[in-house]
Simulated assay, not measured.
Amino acid sequence: MFVLAEMKHVIRTPPWKFHVKLNDAIAEELNRKLANKVVLNVGLCIALYDIVGLEDSYIFPGDGSAHTKVKFRYVVFRPFMEEVIIGKIRSCSREGVHVTLGFFDDVIIPPAALQHPSRFDETEQVWVWEYDTGGGSHDLFMDAGESIKFRVTAENFVETSPKGPETPSDTASTSEAPKEEAKIPYSLTGGINEPGLGLLSWWENS
């Protein structure tokens, strides 16, 4: 679920931080820049693990700051495919079951990946597994807050870099157009359509 990603970056250390050890100043800046941010095709950055190497620092004309090229390793959340994870149901919709891991909310289990057969209850706004008892069926509700075990089946990275400055014509055209939905930079798709997966309570007494 968590991996070490090796990265490189040029860190700018302002003059008022020169009294701090260079490693400490750089570590603080790396965490400020990366912690809780998604790096495209890398994952969700959690915390700095260690600094592998520092190159010489340079001060450029007109800027009193020190610029240092840093090689470092960062703890990143990026589950591998087919990994089984336990989370909690955040909500349900016709799009599927939305799961949270506490620090990461962008997990969805689509209808096709639920236990079969399942239906969406419009009144309760929950998905229901129609469990076959042999002589009929028993409804098992997927309520918000329940612990759920799922298998990671896909991941999706979306480029969310800010666009360049808007021109007056862009502003005029966008003021009339509906606002775009905020893009999710990193999301996971899961599945529970196999024995042992789904709500933990389903299998506790099995």
Rank of each mutant, 00 (worst) to 15 (best):
V3P: 01
M7G: 08
V10Q: 14
I11K: 13
R12E: 14
W16P: 11
W16N: 15
H19R: 03
V20A: 06
V20W: 10
D24Q: 14
D24T: 12
I26Q: 12
A27H: 14
E28H: 09
E29V: 08
L34E: 05
N36G: 02
K37M: 11
L40M: 11
N41C: 06
G43T: 09
G43I: 08
L44G: 04
L44M: 11
I46P: 00
A47I: 12
A47L: 07
L48P: 13
L54Q: 15
E55I: 06
I59Y: 02
F60T: 12
G62H: 13
D63P: 07
G64H: 09
K69C: 04
K71F: 02
F72N: 11
V75M: 10
E82N: 12
E83G: 03
G87H: 03
I89R: 04
C92A: 10
R94E: 13
V99D: 07
V99L: 11
L101E: 09
F104E: 01
F104D: 01
D106Y: 15
I108T: 07
I109M: 04
P110D: 10
P111W: 03
Q115M: 14
P117Y: 10
P117F: 09
R119H: 09
E122H: 10
V126C: 14
V126Q: 14
W127Q: 12
V128Y: 07
W129S: 08
Y131F: 14
Y131K: 15
Y131Q: 15
T133F: 09
G134Q: 14
L140Y: 08
M142S: 05
A144N: 06
A144T: 15
G145F: 02
S147I: 01
I148K: 02
I148M: 08
F150L: 05
T153A: 09
A154L: 03
E155M: 14
E155D: 13
N156I: 05
P162K: 04
K163Y: 01
G164H: 00
G164I: 00
E166A: 11
P168K: 04
D170I: 03
T171H: 00
E176V: 13
K179A: 05
K179W: 02
P185E: 10
Y186I: 05
L188P: 04
L188K: 04
G191V: 02
I192H: 00
P195W: 04
L200Q: 05
L200H: 07
W203E: 02
E204A: 11
N205F: 09
